[in-house]
């Protein structure tokens, strides 16, 4: 798409960075996300409690900020694992070529054959709920994107002069891949990582919406949306906070990805 004005990218970076800071600081913020107030069930927004209270009278704002910790950190972990494993996998099969590449591609095809978040749903359903299992399930879903990209990019690098020279000079394969290939394919991988971050936050929220992610009473955005949707008639305000949090993070990160892509002129 067209290059966005820089101001927009800066704003998006600020929003994404803000959520990241809240996620990292989460455990040290003076929040009481699980404090129940039975005299304030479904209380609407007030000045003191701008997002209102939920079905147990808990502060939605506090739950939102505390929930950022799980949602964003899980996503960062998943993207880190996926990028590391996927990139290594893709680079290696492309570098080896031949039968290894063929088998590696069929393995990737198999993972890609599970539509959308179905694999993550099936995996976390089998592994049982819990954040560790969510990380495994979502990584199983997202590594392929990195592997595919790294494979294609490495294939293109394989016949570049500097790589051939390094090879002729007897540089080890590992050193060539690390020093002469990886730096040149890092830009598209970073762009992919940005989009993956947004996708994984959505997928994590989807899993917790289905009850497969964080377990109550721990706050998580997806679960808050699920709770809220049970009380749409009584307390429509409950869905506003977590909905906007999720939306603002995903839009900001996606726009950041667009910005990086335009800047580095990466084609997707």
């Amino acid at each position: 798409m067209r290059a966005r004005p820089r101001a927009g990218t800066v704003l998006c970076a600020a929003i994404a960075g803000g959520w990241l800071a809240i996620a990292l600081l989460g455990p040290w913020l003076p929040l009481a996300p699980t404090a129940v107030d039975l005299y304030a069930l479904f209380a609407g927004p007030t000045l003191a409690e701008p997002l209102g209270r939920d079905d147990l009278g808990r502060s939605i704002l506090a739950r939102l900020l505390a929930g950022a910790h799980d949602s964003v950190l899980v996503a960062l972990l998943v993207v880190a694992f996926s990028a590391l494993f996927g990139t290594t996998f893709g680079m290696l099969i492309a570098w080896r070529g031949g039968l290894v590449d063929l088998i590696g591609m069929r393995v990737m095809d198999t993972f890609l054959a599970f539509p959308g978040i179905l694999l993550a749903i099936g995996l976390s359903g089998m592994l049982g709920p819990g954040l560790g299992n969510v990380v495994i399930a979502l990584s199983a879903m997202s590594w392929v994107g990195f592997a595919r990209l790294a494979r294609v990019q490495t294939l293109a690098m394989k016949t570049r002069d500097h790589v051939m020279v390094a090879r002729a000079l007897g540089t080890t394969d590992a050193a060539i891949l690390r020093r002469h290939v990886l730096p040149l394919i890092a830009a598209p991988l970073l762009v992919e990582a940005t989009f993956a971050l947004a996708g994984v936050v959505l997928a994590e929220a989807g899993l917790s919406y289905l009850g497969l992610g964080a377990q109550p009473p721990a706050p998580s955005w997806g679960m808050m949306i699920r709770d809220a949707s049970q009380f749409l008639l009584v307390a429509p305000h409950m869905v506003v906070g977590p909905g906007l949090a999720l939306l603002s993070f995903v839009v900001a990160v996606n726009a950041l990805g667009d910005g990086l892509r335009d800047r580095w002129q990466v084609q997707r």
Partner: peptide, 15 residues
């Protein structure tokens, strides 16, 4: 289309 891509089904549905 940016908003549409960021709105998950479990949020759009309830809306």
């Amino acid at each position: 289309s940016m908003l549409g891509a960021a709105l998950p089904n479990f949020l759009l549905g309830p809306i």
